[in-house]
Each structure stands twice: as structure tokens, then as C-alpha cells.
Design a protein around this nucleic acid. Structure first.
Lengths: 198, 198
DNA sequence: GTCTATACGAAGATAGAC
DNA sequence: GTCTATCTTCGTATAGAC
């Protein structure tokens, strides 16, 4: 296993940062090299498939990083509300600390991958994994099995949407609003006999 | 007021279609001309500000079109659940009829506008208007005034997120899941004394 | 593994004729 | 208002040296 400070890895990290801010298409290799400090010659050495391969790997890599967060949360003993707050804080920090320039690199892949099959697939797999992990996490903490997937999807979708709204409107209000509504939804979903979901 | 079949208008329509499918940056004027059939000479005649102006106008135009849908819904006498289903069906059709290639052009502007202030602002204004209209619509139909904005934001955000998930995963499952959860959330929000939202 | 140089094409933008 | 031609910039990708 090569060290993390490898040029290849630095390029993936930089790619994620740049995809967050300007999207996939508008990110050139020159930008990635400047941001990562990676040597020019390593572009096609590490990514013989060119930009397409690079974009897919960045999205997949960002997807795995977030999946690990879900896994860690599932292994801990925090309750659903604490876990939700942790996730919301995570995204909030990304959006606010970048002065509303940064969003989710996987979302960028989803938006710009309409014509590029590989990119679209990479985003889809990342989102799929997140949904699966969240579903299990919810099911393990009191959400009825037949509602866990729906709630997981609501949580993921509304957070992704809130990031879009927050970035473009330059306010964290949407993220805070969604946080409050999701807390309510989790309450409702874990309440013994609840008629919701129909 | 010039007729809608004007070349300028056709370019905006085509721009919206193309932004949905491949995003803003990957859409070239050549694509817009080919799709709209507009004369080559009209690009810088109608959009002296070039690509930047064009992108902003497309996003603003798509935003207005959706705003009108909200207005029409508010004027009708459908209940909240019918209105929600109508909106969900609208987006579902766009995603499915394009074989999962198309999403929301305003979302594309939000994702790719991290570095371009004008584009970001256009997306933000569109989302802001949608939120405002939806908030009023909800407040007018039984959602308590102090919860209407939060619920409006949840609806908008989760639908936008569901579109991202559906496109990239090539399944309408996320849209259906969010639909069901939002029906439940609307039920909870319109129930006389409900503790949610805290 | 990394470098420089360069080929090649795409796309935005401008100029000037009609 | 629309056309063609062209300029320029940029970005991907390749070739070949070190």
C-alpha cells in the first residue's frame, strides 16, 4: 500500500476540492496540478484513461470517504439525533468555511454525468452505498425495517438539496431548516405506531 | 413583446434542455444552435455578454417557468397532497422520459456556479422564489405560519436531492420514496397540535 | 516516474460583409 | 439581423528525452 502523500492521492484530494467548487467539466488538469503540487508528468502516468478516468476516481474516492463516516457513526453508540447533527455539522462546515463556494463532489458528478456514463455510474454507486449504510443505521436504531429505506432516502436527498439551496442563496438557512425537519421526521419514524409513509 | 418563436427564446429553451442533461460548462453555443436551429449570427447579437450572460438567462428563465407552476397551483383548489403529487409527477416525467439523463437546470447552475458569481446568483434567486411561493402556498393551506418555511424548504430540498439520486442511480425509487415521506411530513405539519420542527 | 514540447481539437469571442 | 471567417485561448492528449 503506497503512502498517502503519493502524487496520485494528492491529485484525487485536490480533484475533490475543485469539483466541489466549480464542478467537473470546469476543472482542468492544470488546476489539479497547481492545487496539488503534483508533477506534470504524473497525469497520464497515474491516469492513463485521462480526464474521464480521473473524474470517475475522484467521485468514487469522495464517495468512499463519506461511506466511512457512516460506518464509524454506525459503530458508535450515539443516538439518531446525535448522528444527524454530526452529519449536518459536517456539511454545514464545508459550505460555510468555503464561503458558500463548495458543495458535494458526488452531486457534481451526478449533475454533469448525464452524458458521460462512467461519471454518472460513479456518482450513482456512491449515492447507492450511502443510502444502504444509512438504511442499516436507521434500522438498527429503532426505525421500522419497512420504513428505514424511505427515511434514509429522505435524509440523504434533503441534505443534498439543502446544500444546493444554501450555496446558491449564500445562507445556511436551508441546512438549518432541513436539520429541524429531519429531527421531527426521525421522531415520527421511531414513534411506536406511526401511520406515516403511506 | 416579441413572439415566443423568436430565435432568442428558442435558444433559451434549448439551453434549459441541454443544461439539464450535461450541465452548463459542457454545453457549447454550437450545441445550442444545433438544438434550437437558431441562426449562428444571433448568438452575440442576442447575448452580447456571451456565455456568461446566456447561462444566467437560461437559469433565470427556467426558474420563472417553475415559479409560474407554483402560482398556478396556489390559485387552484387542490389540497396539499394533490399539489405535491403534481409536482412529483412533473419531475418524475422529466427524469424518466429522458432515460435519466435530465435533471434540473437551476441545480446545474448551483453546482457549477461556485466560481461564477452571476450564475450562482441566478440559481439562488430562482431557488429563493420557489421557496417563497411554496411557503405561502403551505401557509394558505393549513401549515402553521411558523413551520411553513421549514416545510417548504424540506419539500424543495428533498425533491432536488431525489432528482440527483434518481438520475445517477437510474431508478425512480428515490423520487417515490421522497414522495411518500413528504406526504407523511405534510400530514404531520397540518395536524392540529404537533410538536415537530423543534 | 517525471520532464518538456507539441500536436490537436474545441470553444468563446470579434470583425467585417451582406 | 444574420452570415462567414478568423483570432485566440485553453485543455486534452501524445511523443520522446532524461
Amino acid at each position: 500500500m503506497p503512502p498517502r502523500s503519493d502524487a496520485r492521492q494528492r491529485m484525487l484530494d485536490s480533484g475533490a476540492v475543485l469539483f466541489r467548487e466549480r464542478g467537473v467539466t470546469a476543472t482542468a488538469f492544470a488546476d489539479v496540478l497547481a492545487h496539488s503540487g503534483a508533477p506534470r508528468g504524473s497525469v497520464y502516468h497515474h491516469f492513463p484513461g485521462g480526464k474521464e478516468q480521473f473524474a470517475e476516481e475522484v467521485v468514487a474516492y469522495a464517495g468512499r470517504a463519506m461511506s466511512r463516516r457512516f460506518s464509524r457513526a454506525a459503530e458508535g453508540d450515539d443516538d439518531l439525533h446525535a448522528i444527524l447533527d454530526d452529519a449536518v455539522d459536517h456539511w454545514m462546515a464545508i459550505v460555510r468555511d468555503s464561503d458558500f463556494r463548495a458543495g458535494c463532489p458526488v452531486a457534481a458528478g451526478a449533475v454533469e454525468g448525464g452524458a458521460e456514463e462512467g461519471l454518472r455510474a460513479a456518482a450513482g454507486e456512491a449515492f447507492g452505498h450511502w443510502t444502504d449504510r444509512l438504511e442499516r443505521l436507521l434500522a438498527g436504531r429503532g426505525v421500522p425495517a419497512d420504513r428505514a429505506r424511505g427515511v434514509a432516502t429522505l435524509v440523504l436527498a434533503s441534505l443534498q438539496g439543502a446544500i444546493l439551496l444554501a450555496r446558491s442563496r449564500r445562507t445556511v438557512e436551508p441546512i438549518e431548516a432541513v436539520r429541524a425537519e429531519l429531527h421531527a421526521a426521525l421522531d415520527a419514524a421511531t414513534r411506536p405506531s406511526d401511520g406515516a409513509g403511506a
